[in-house]
């Protein structure tokens, strides 16, 4: 038996909006520690890892570990039927072939339940080791989204370079080239507006912009985003989800022949 009650149901709606275009089908894993998902995009270039910790739910009952295969397009259709202020409860029976999403309006005067069929998904679970990164950049998520969107009008790839001077995003295409440099700044008034660079050594990596643009659909989940980079390793683009968890996107760098 599984029963997870999330008071801020809009978070789940936003999570689905953030990943449904990147991943078609995924297994949601439920355990004592939380509700999680790990999935690759269809071309196996990017990986998304979601964690909603159990202590972030108002009520969290998970009698035994459960993996539920869901089509994210269908799940998103159902969650779109929940109001932004609704409380969402996810319910499933052990060994059942469906999951129920229950939506309650804040004043409890409207209760809906939507039952969705589960599917068998054969997915590979990858072990992601804890890594010391060469550089970690924390910046406003809207700024990162803006840069990715702007640069993708010029080129297909972006070189992200972190040095002591700041973080530089560069692209080039048929019509020309562009560079955007963000320097470290400290905002006294609002930590969310800060760009903070922690660098052990300079790092420069090339990525396909269309994936980064897809990741920025998570911008509504958090005011800040963190980019963690090491030489020749995937970048981690992380959005914290309020007090409850995170969504991390891993993207393999492009490597020169």
């Amino acid at each position: 038996m599984l029963e997870l009650r999330l008071v801020q149901g809009s978070l789940l709606k936003k999570v689905l909006d953030a990943i449904k275009d990147l991943v078609t089908d995924a297994n949601f894993d439920c355990s004592e520690s939380g509700f999680s998902l790990q999935a690759m995009d269809s071309s196996h270039v990017a990986l998304v890892a979601l964690l909603l910790r159990s202590d972030g739910f108002e009520h969290y009952r998970c009698d035994r570990n459960l993996s539920m295969g869901m089509n994210l397009t269908n799940m998103s259709k159902m969650l779109k039927c929940a109001g932004n202020d609704d409380i969402i409860t996810i319910k499933a029976d052990d060994g059942g072939d469906s999951v129920t999403f229950m939506f309650e309006s804040p004043s409890q005067d409207k209760v809906s339940d939507f039952e969705m069929k589960l599917m068998d998904i054969d997915s590979e679970h990858l072990g992601i080791p804890e890594t010391e990164y060469h550089a970690i950049v924390k910046m406003p998520s809207a700024e990162f989204a803006r840069i990715c969107r702007d640069l993708s009008t010029i080129g297909d790839t972006v070189v992200i370079s972190v040095s002591k001077d700041g973080v530089k995003f560069s692209t080039s295409g048929d019509i020309g080239s562009a560079n955007v440099v963000c320097r470290q700044n400290n905002s006294v008034d609002n930590k969310d507006n800060e760009t903070v660079i922690e660098m052990n050594e300079p790092v420069s990596l090339t990525f396909a912009l269309r994936y980064l643009n897809s990741f920025t659909k998570a911008t509504t989940l958090s005011n800040t985003v963190t980019l963690s980079m090491s030489k020749e390793l995937p970048v981690v683009v992380e959005y914290k989800i309020a007090e409850i968890g995170h969504i991390r996107f891993y993207l393999a760098p492009k490597i020169e022949d």
């Binding site: 690759m40 990858l126 072990g127 090339t206 393999a252 492009k254």
Partner: peptide, 14 residues
């Protein structure tokens, strides 16, 4: 030109 590696090649499966 540049090559796009699979994300799975960076992590351990299982």
């Amino acid at each position: 030109s540049s090559q796009q590696r699979s994300i799975a090649s960076f992590f351990e499966s299982g």
